[in-house]
Amino acid sequence: MTTVQIPQRMNFATAAPKVFRAVLALDAAARQGLDPVLVELVQIRVSQINRCAYCIDYHAGDARKAGESEERILQLSAWEESSLYTAEERAALALAESVTLLPQGVSDAVYAEAAQHFDEQQLAQLIALVFTANAWNRMNVTTRKTPGTA
Score class of each variant (00 low, 15 high):
W79N: 00
T86S: 14
V42D: 00
N137C: 01
Q116M: 12
T143M: 15
L95H: 01
Q104I: 04
R21I: 11
S98H: 10
S98I: 04
L24E: 12
I127Y: 03
E70T: 05
A135Y: 07
H117K: 13
I127D: 06
R21T: 15
K65D: 08
L93I: 01
T146L: 12
P147T: 08
A92P: 00
L84R: 12
T143S: 15
A60Q: 13
L129Q: 07
A96L: 02
T142W: 08
V99F: 07
R64V: 09
T86I: 00
A135Q: 11
P147C: 08
D27Y: 04
A66M: 10
C52M: 05
H117C: 10
S69K: 08
A128L: 11
D119T: 14
Q122K: 13
A60P: 08
A87T: 07
T132L: 05
A28C: 05
D62V: 07
Q121K: 15
R31F: 07
N50P: 04
R51I: 08
N50H: 05
R138T: 02
Q43H: 11
V4K: 14
Q122Y: 03
T132D: 09
A53N: 11
V19Q: 14
P147K: 10
R31E: 14
R51W: 13
L84H: 04
C52K: 05
A63Q: 02
E97R: 11
N134T: 11
A150N: 14
A30Y: 06
A30W: 08
A87S: 13
M10C: 12
T86N: 00
E71L: 14
I127E: 05
A96K: 01
A13M: 14
A128I: 04
C55P: 02
T100S: 06
E120N: 13
A28I: 05
S77V: 12
L26T: 12
P7Q: 14
L102S: 09
H117S: 05
A78G: 09
T3N: 11
S83Y: 10
A53W: 08
V4G: 04
A128P: 02
P103Q: 11
K65M: 09
K145Q: 15
S69V: 06
V23E: 06
L76W: 07
F20Q: 11
L24D: 10
A60T: 15
P17E: 02
I73Y: 03
E70N: 03
A53P: 06
I49L: 10
S77Q: 09
V39R: 02
V141E: 09
D62F: 10
Y58L: 15
V4L: 13
Y85D: 00
Y54I: 09
A87I: 03
A13I: 08
A94P: 04
I56S: 07
P17W: 06
P7D: 14
E97Q: 12
Q48V: 07
N50A: 03
R9G: 15
Q43C: 13
T146I: 13
A15R: 15
V99H: 02
A30H: 08
T100P: 09
A96R: 01
T149L: 10
D35C: 01
A109T: 13
N11C: 12
